[in-house]
């Protein structure tokens, strides 16, 4: 699993609960080191071990933990770069939803060996969408749910989201857009430092 993904888990635990709790997770997972390197590749089972350890250490259900990681990625000041790159997807939340199909390609353009699961958005009624997630590794669905919820806030949109698990690595996210301009939302300028 790419270091960026492992690093996201580390960042979430350390920035939310403190460095000591993260160190406890690394011990529980029998990691043998304290910090993931963002630009290195690690065996996939290592990521699963860290997630299992975080579930135990933080006393959270696995899907809930993954969703919180998604929210962290899209909204925490320490992860501002991710939020900005996501905002390049479009001017409105609907544009953003439609840009998700391209997300794995966009990620690969930035970091060529970063593999994300395939995403496909379908709109089956006005304002009602299904985002299907299919990948090799389990857990992206709930994490993406967190990302979507945080990004809806970022755009100031009011949405209802629901996760349907459809087997390991396969998920469907049901998205209902109630109002696209519900709240002010956060500013985003192309030139950065907004």
């Amino acid at each position: 699993m790419h270091g960026l993904i492992n690093r996201a888990i580390q960042g979430f635990v350390a920035d939310t609960y403190g460095r000591a709790r993260w160190i406890a997770v690394t011990h529980l997972a029998d990691l043998g080191f304290a910090d993931f390197e963002a630009m290195m590749i690690y065996p996939p089972e290592l990521t699963q071990r860290v997630l299992d350890a975080a579930v135990r250490e933080l006393g959270k259900a696995r899907d809930e933990l993954l969703e919180d990681i998604g929210i962290y990625l899209a909204s925490h000041p320490q992860a501002e770069a991710v939020r900005r790159l996501l905002r390049f997807g479009g001017v409105t939340f609907v544009d953003f939803l439609h840009s998700l199909d391209d997300l794995p390609e966009r990620a690969r353009l930035a970091v060529s060996d970063l593999a994300l699961p395939a995403l496909e958005l379908s709109e089956h009624a006005p304002g009602r969408y299904t985002l299907t997630v299919s990948g090799e590794h389990d857990g992206f669905g709930p994490m993406l749910l967190g990302v979507l919820r945080a990004m809806a806030d970022d755009y100031g949109a009011l949405v209802y989201t629901e996760l349907r698990r459809a087997g390991p690595g396969s998920d469907a996210l049901e998205i209902t857009l109630v109002e696209s301009a519900y709240a002010e939302g956060r500013r985003f300028v192309l030139g950065g430092s907004d």
Partner: peptide, 13 residues
């Protein structure tokens, strides 16, 4: 612009 920003972040890492 997306690429410039994404590549700068990756390069920094």
């Amino acid at each position: 612009l997306y690429l410039v920003e994404a590549k700068s972040a990756a390069m920094e890492a």
